[in-house]
Simulated scan of single mutants.
Amino acid sequence: MARIQRLGELSEVTPSPSSDQFEGLGEGLGGTPVIAPGDIADGKIAEQPLLRSLEKVPDSLERFQVAPGDLVMVRQGAVGRIALVEERSRGWLYHFACMRVRPHRALVDPGYLIAYLSHPKVLDQLLTRANVGTVTTVTTRMVEELPVAVPPIAEQRLLTGALAEVNAQIENHRRSLARLEALRPALITHVLGGEVPGERLPVPAAAPEPVRRAARGPRPRRLS
């Protein structure tokens, strides 16, 4: 039977770094990636976040690096977005609009925890606790106080495995759908011989000066 515990008892919730610690943050290929809210979708982190920090992570930001099994949660704006950190994101930083949830593995499985926190009814609870103003915000304390139903760890891991199979099937269907959507216009183009009528309209050449003058009509005569 599942027991109920606070999220703060099951994990270490680390608040976001302050915005002034990201001086020099910009877009590019160099530096350590920074996980921003826009990089989080469908429980995953984008492979190539746009924002990157300085070439070397300063000492003041080292405690905000992530490791596999961590959860990164949006705390400001798109509250409720959450992603599980994979090996490829080891050592990345998280944005000041996010927070990190590091599960205590002996108590809760990371895969189970992200599935639970992503449940629509749990998200509703989180949003109910949020500060709603110009920008919706949740605090570390609000997240720590969130109740979590915790089955025995063996059951959590079984559920995590089952959910991984479901997610794999969903991803396969998405890829199939994307291929079919791309195939539909391609079939029409193929039947028409590779070109749609009017696709390449000739650019009209400029008319000679006498023709342009005739189109404008005669010039008005000056009165002497």
Score class of each variant (00 low, 15 high):
94 Y>I: 03
179 R>I: 08
52 R>C: 03
14 T>N: 12
212 R>H: 10
153 I>S: 06
15 P>K: 12
95 H>N: 11
106 A>H: 11
142 M>A: 13
32 T>M: 09
110 P>G: 14
111 G>E: 10
211 V>F: 14
73 M>N: 02
71 L>M: 04
104 H>L: 15
214 A>V: 02
158 L>G: 11
43 G>M: 01
81 R>C: 01
2 A>K: 02
125 Q>L: 15
23 E>H: 08
98 C>D: 01
64 F>S: 10
38 G>H: 01
168 A>W: 03
93 L>E: 09
188 I>D: 03
85 V>E: 05
184 R>S: 04
224 S>T: 12
59 D>F: 10
24 G>N: 05
215 A>G: 06
84 L>M: 06
11 S>E: 07
47 E>F: 06
182 A>W: 04
86 E>I: 02
146 L>D: 13
61 L>Q: 12
208 P>F: 00
18 S>A: 10
165 E>P: 09
76 Q>T: 14
133 G>W: 09
72 V>S: 11
107 L>T: 09
205 A>I: 11
197 P>T: 01
206 A>N: 05
31 G>Y: 08
87 E>F: 06
164 A>E: 08
190 H>W: 07
28 G>Y: 09
116 Y>Q: 12
75 R>E: 06
185 P>L: 02
80 G>H: 02
131 N>H: 15
117 L>R: 13
154 A>V: 07
82 I>F: 00
219 R>L: 15
192 L>G: 03
